[in-house]
Amino acid sequence: MRILYLEDEPVLGRIVKESLESRDCSVDWFTSESSGAAALQAANDYHIAVLDVQLPGRSGLAIGKELRAKWPRLPILYLTARIQAKDAVAGFEAGGNDYIRKPFSMEELLIRMRNLVNMRSGESALPAPRRPENEQWALGDLQFDYLEMTLTGPDTSVSLSHREAQLLRYLLLHRHKPQIERRDILLALWGDDGFFHSRNLDVYIRKLRTYLQVEDDLRIITLRGVGYRLILPGDATDT
């Protein structure tokens, strides 16, 4: 799926782009009004446009209207933090086919995009996403299966919650970084880095530590004031 993505918030934009690309999507991420103009010129090359509503300069709704006028069959999905019914109506009047309220999950975003693309092109126009090869990990003697949401070993078997599985997967995908920032995790999993979700993150980190403590040298290190680092058996660390 080729996606035109318009988002001015740099951290969220990068996280959404990377997350979708890890799910076999091709994403061209545009920011600012000038890049928005470039996006308008290239819109015919995409399966769908995903536009943030609140942008500096022209709003996402204004850009959506231009896209709709120029490319009548291009599906448009709006992202908005607004929750009133009149805001949803404004999105549809601006040529939108659907909208998602922030914060949103990547799973919901992907499903909504695929539905819009398939409705435009015919049922099953896009193949179902393949199972990524890296959705199963060996953590010493433990085995983590993200799609099954299980953590199993010789003497343990844990059924993870959806959020626990998401968090462990995120830590694994970014384990080669010297630090994984809390804000990046919060925006990737919750779409928001507010106090409530930050406290939730603390709870899930504690739960994962409990599950992982059965394996020697497997741990989540807290980097005070920054975030975390996942240490796997065999990793070299000075911490």
Results as ranks from 00 to 15, higher is better:
K177F: 09
L77S: 05
D238V: 07
L201C: 12
Q143T: 15
I221A: 10
L139V: 09
E33Q: 15
P75G: 07
G140D: 12
F92A: 04
F92T: 01
I231Y: 07
R82I: 00
L40V: 10
S22I: 00
G227F: 06
P154R: 08
Q136M: 11
D192N: 13
G194D: 13
S121W: 07
A62P: 01
I231V: 15
L79R: 06
R163S: 07
E7S: 08
G153P: 06
A88E: 09
Y211S: 08
L232H: 05
D155V: 14
L55Q: 04
D8W: 03
N200W: 05
L171I: 03
D98L: 03
L212S: 02
D145Y: 12
V158L: 03
P72S: 09
D216G: 00
L212F: 05
L116Q: 09
V16R: 09
R131P: 00
G191T: 11
L116W: 05
L201I: 08
N115D: 08
D192Y: 07
G225I: 11
R183T: 06
Y146N: 08
L172N: 03
F195I: 13
E215N: 09
G191P: 06
R112H: 10
R2W: 02
L79W: 05
F104Y: 14
A94R: 03
K65G: 04
E7A: 09
Q179I: 06
V11M: 14
L6F: 11
D216H: 06
L168Q: 01
Y170I: 02
A85C: 00
M149Y: 01
Y228F: 15
W190Q: 06
W137H: 13
H176Q: 11
I83D: 13
G140T: 12
K17G: 04
S198R: 08
R14M: 10
A90C: 04
R175F: 02
S34R: 15
